[in-house]
Design a protein around this nucleic acid. Structure first.
Lengths: 239, 239
DNA sequence: CGGTTAGTTGAGCTGGATCAAGCGTAGTGG
DNA sequence: CCACTACGCTTGATCCAGCTCAACTAACCG
């Protein structure tokens, strides 16, 4: 159940048997949420965090005119709102993109962990800092990359992140975002996303449709995206 | 020396006398860095973090074609790269925008703090989560706000953050970014930033020039920016 | 006083937005 | 079994916010 989460932790540092026991004890219950449902709203007071066990989720913020920006994507093994442990309430909403299975983690269990397991605390601190690193890369995307570069970049990033948890099969992976959602993540319009996907397809670089993605020419895609995976911190750096 | 930093910590939670002593003991030395110098480069291995004592700094990322995105602005009292404590190396560069005075904080002192002061650890974890919250708001800016909205938003944000450390005088504050730097923060061109600043000036909303900003009509500016300061977590939420 | 950096303005262009129509397919209910 | 609906995707035509290119001013500084 927590295998992908532990896989992700262990990709960056060692996790002792005792620590694994503590991690496994964090979840008080599991729940299933249907696709396209907002499970947490901004400014709502929170006493639990959410571990994503299966499915895709996103964080998003809206402008008062209804425009939406997806600020992060989450895949199995991600602690979707670990930051609510210190922030107490979020500045954004959290939505299930697909049907999801989640683990509920009470903040008092995290607090107990902080008091007794300082190394594990730093591992989770690291995890929230990694979220921030991804946010920064997205700022670069939204501020400076071209439309096709943004699409290419998100495909490269998700491929790398999914690979880490064993959810890719070579160049193929499940990619459940609709073109509307992809446009909300890349700061484009759905119409323009459609055109850019068509271009990637016609140039033989990548195919994205029907909830799946195939990266036919990863090198060309990375060049388009100006992709440098350093920001994903894929190499272990013990705490 | 650390007054602004402590002011910021205490705006969100109580800091005991013992904790204050620990905080004051974090800095091993202070240094002065000239304006327009990059003090930390991405992927460089780090053993210290940087506390900004005086002046403005920024974090930025470059695309390989030379395009630059400033991903965060820092003002006195900010822990500019506290996240390097868990990340070990950064995914971005750090530059002094003005002449700055900085405090050097060795990671081993932070490690010692983590082992002995769990509440303080959570305060600093909170601080890095707040940085991420600002990143998310900037994603919304870059992805969805109009040019004038982005400029207006950055003015609102910096006014709020500077006010917290007592560096505003009513609607006036020092704003040392050049129009080029402002364009790099907002994902625009310097020429267009210039026109938007002119528009704000001509509409009697705000004046930005000569390293200073005056918000003549804060309400109009906030409306343009669609500004909601919730993401700055200005209300105390004890850890 | 010549060089450099920051800011300003005009003219024209273009990447991505907007508006609008149509298609394919998976429900759904009669 | 088929009409109806809804949603996601596709395509064309047109528009415009912000970009590009270029020239000029102002302040500062060695």
């Amino acid at each position: 159940m927590l295998d992908k989460h532990l896989m992700k932790l262990r990709a960056r540092d060692t996790v002792s048997a005792d620590e694994e026991r503590v991690v496994r004890g964090l979840i008080s219950e599991t729940r299933v949420v249907p696709a396209k449902t907002t499970i947490i709203r901004a400014e709502q007071r929170l006493a639990t965090s959410t571990m994503l066990l299966d499915g895709w989720m996103c964080r998003y913020k809206d402008l008062s005119n209804g425009q939406r920006q997806i600020t992060a994507l989450h895949i199995p093994g991600d602690f979707v709102d670990l930051h609510s442990f210190t922030l107490k309430q979020l500045d954004h909403n959290i939505m299930a993109l697909t049907r999801c299975r989640i683990g509920v983690v009470p903040h008092d269990r995290l607090l107990a962990m902080c008091e007794s397991h300082t190394h594990l605390t730093r591992l989770y601190w690291f995890a929230t800092n990694m979220d921030a690193a991804i946010h920064r890369e997205w700022e670069l995307c939204l501020g400076r990359r071209t439309a096709i570069g943004r699409i290419a970049h998100i495909l490269c990033e998700m491929h790398a992140r999914l690979k880490l948890i064993g959810m890719t099969h070579g160049n193929w992976f499940a990619f459940p975002l609709t073109q509307l959602e992809l446009s909300e993540a890349t700061g484009l319009t759905p119409v323009h996303v459609n055109r850019m996907l068509k271009e990637l397809r016609e140039r033989g670089i990548a195919e994205v449709r029907g909830g799946e993605a195939v990266l036919h020419d990863a090198a060309a895609l990375e060049a388009l995206a100006d992709f440098n995976p350093t920001y994903l911190y894929l190499n272990p750096e013990p705490q």
